[in-house]
Design a protein around this nucleic acid. Structure first.
Lengths: 161, 161
DNA sequence: CAGTATCCTCGCAGATACTG
DNA sequence: CAGTATCTGCGAGGATACTG
């Protein structure tokens, strides 16, 4: 059988993964954050096959993460630019990079450092926090059905104390 | 040719994706955060094939995200529990869920609401912030080579102003 | 219950040639 | 330059049967 699709699942993580969850997509988005905009530049930087790249870019445009903009004369050049929806992925990429910096590369071996342009200081770690500033872990959180919860989601959450 | 592997790439996002970037892995981790611990429970909840689930669990244990714990008598029951490294993925899952809640489901249609157990209040959005509390977007950030940067990473970052 | 062993099918991906 | 078309194949993923 073919791959199970997640786009009907009543779960935010699943839906996001249906769009972003394959091997290449988030790397393409990362490149977009770094300022890459042209087909050839994505291709050269990632070493991805041209047809795969074309497919991923098309999907990202369909989902509104990137916008394909005609630039220059006669539509022979295009650029792929992050939309607002795309830029909203910054916390996702940041969280992945920070996790990897700490747990895969190890502290002190990060390939990239990110600073606030204004203050020149390193950006504080991305953490789940409460109103009053406490850092929250899994056990500090309580999940409950939201307005968009399906019956299954509701049942699932109630089974789990 | 087979898939390009990312585990030699000098990039945090790529390394993280080499571990987490397939279709199922982050959903398994999400379930673990929800409190799922048993093979059969993962299988029933996700509808994933048993051999694929076994493979993913093994990989997650190898990478230290989950720990396989013998429980009960004579090693006939096991549980998979999040390690510290695994729990450190909370921001990643949170970022994905929040992005999806806002941009895929739309505001007011979130399947799940997350509250701070202590205050009962909803958890503030995960945002990249500066020391002084400003919310930072892509253009507010400056990336530079870190201590673990390879020559390629260094060159890449310098090409991009 | 928690897997392993097999088999099978597509989808993902790479390589290359071609086109407006 | 920015793709499309075509070929090819590995392997991810699904289904099922079996086992300690």
């Amino acid at each position: 059988m073919s791959r199970t699709r997640f786009d009907r699942l009543n779960c935010g993580v699943a839906r996001a993964l249906e769009i972003l969850g394959d091997w290449w997509t988030l790397l393409i988005v990362r490149d977009a954050f770094f300022g890459v905009r042209r087909f050839a530049d994505f291709q050269a930087d990632l070493g991805i096959a041209r047809n795969i790249l074309a497919d991923r870019l098309r999907r990202l445009v369909e989902h509104g993460v990137l916008a394909k903009v005609d630039v220059g004369r006669s539509g022979v050049r295009h650029e792929y630019r992050l939309t607002e929806k795309g830029e909203a992925l910054l916390p996702v990429l940041t969280a992945l990079r920070e996790w990897s910096d700490e747990w895969v590369f190890g502290p002190g071996a990060e390939p990239v450092i990110v600073r606030d342009r204004a203050t020149r200081r390193r950006v504080p770690r991305l953490e789940v926090r409460s109103d009053d500033g406490r850092v929250l872990g899994r056990r500090d959180l309580r999940t409950e059905p939201g307005p968009g919860a399906s019956a299954e989601t509701r049942a699932l959450l109630e089974r789990r104390p």
